[in-house]
């Protein structure tokens, strides 16, 4: 069952740390991590996917202790969508998605035709099949995010971890990404994502965690955790909730 974290601590050499983080990400639900800049969102995400090795605490992935798992085994269970960063080289979008098959390949193996078919399928699911042969460095930010999600899907993992998937996206692309994420959750995936904007946690997450200075300030179903009072405390400024004019893409329009 999904991902569960207990008492996780990570301290950088420079002194910043995240402390005593506990969370559960369940299949079929979306967990949002919010908090001010520098509150430890990315650190937490990187600990979860194995980019950082926590000094203490427990990460259980589908009821197994991740410390006893190889990187490969972790990568078969957790799909990771990093924050946007263009690679140094102009890979084709299809090659990027194919990299998601790496956890299933031996060290000296190259992806087979089956893997390629699977990768193309993932691109088709996200509606970006036409990008397959384009250089990854030449497509837009939203398309890149979708390509990275396709890569995470190619990992065929039940848990998806996304680092600020909606940051810097325009209206249409943000809609495509959030829509895709909620679709995936409804198909049974456990989704963990960090978010820049607390309002998005209310909008598209079932649960939410509010981080402040490396510790959990509030947790629970998003409507309970993301409150004026909690946000004011975490961000250090008085915050009030308003129903300002907003635009949304109509439910049937993609």
């Amino acid at each position: 069952m999904g991902l569960s974290i207990r008492h996780l601590c990570y301290t950088y050499e420079e002194g910043f740390s995240i402390r005593d983080i506990c969370l559960d990400a369940l299949n079929g639900r979306v967990l949002g991590i919010i908090g001010p800049n520098g509150s430890g969102k990315s650190t937490l995400i990187q600990c979860v996917v194995g980019l950082l090795r926590p000094q203490s605490g427990l990460i259980r992935i589908e009821d197994r202790d991740s410390a006893s798992m190889t990187r490969r085994e972790v990568a078969q269970r957790i799909g990771y969508v990093p924050q946007n960063h263009p690679p140094a080289f102009p890979f084709r979008v299809l090659d990027i998605v194919l990299m998601g098959r790496t956890p299933y390949l031996g060290m000296l193996q190259t992806p087979s035709r089956c893997d390629e078919a699977l990768a193309e399928e993932r691109l088709a699911e996200l509606g970006i099949r036409h990008l397959a042969d384009r250089p990854y460095t030449h497509i837009s930010g939203g398309e890149r995010r979708l390509a990275l999600i396709a890569r995470a899907l190619a990992q065929q993992a039940d848990i998806l971890v996304l680092d600020e998937p909606t940051a810097y996206l325009d209206f249409r692309n943000r809609h495509r990404v959030t829509q895709t994420i909620s679709d995936l959750a409804s198909q049974g995936a456990a989704v963990v994502m960090s978010l820049h904007d607390p309002a998005e946690a209310l909008e598209c997450c079932h649960d939410a965690i509010l981080l402040s200075e490396g510790a959990i300030a509030a947790a629970g179903p998003s409507c309970e955790a993301v409150t004026e009072e909690n946000l004011s405390r975490a961000y250090g400024v008085p915050i009030t909730r308003v129903d300002a004019p907003r635009f949304l893409v109509k439910p049937d329009g993609r």
Binding site: L51, Y80, P82, A88, L108, T110
Partner: peptide
């Protein structure tokens, strides 16, 4: 030559760890 696919994946940087690569060793 034998590691050619790994070289592609490693060019993603540390992110390659999340793709199941024993990053430091390889």
């Amino acid at each position: 030559y034998a590691f050619r696919w790994r070289l592609s994946v490693l060019s993603m940087g540390t992110e390659a760890k999340a793709l199941g690569v024993a990053y430091e060793r390889e």
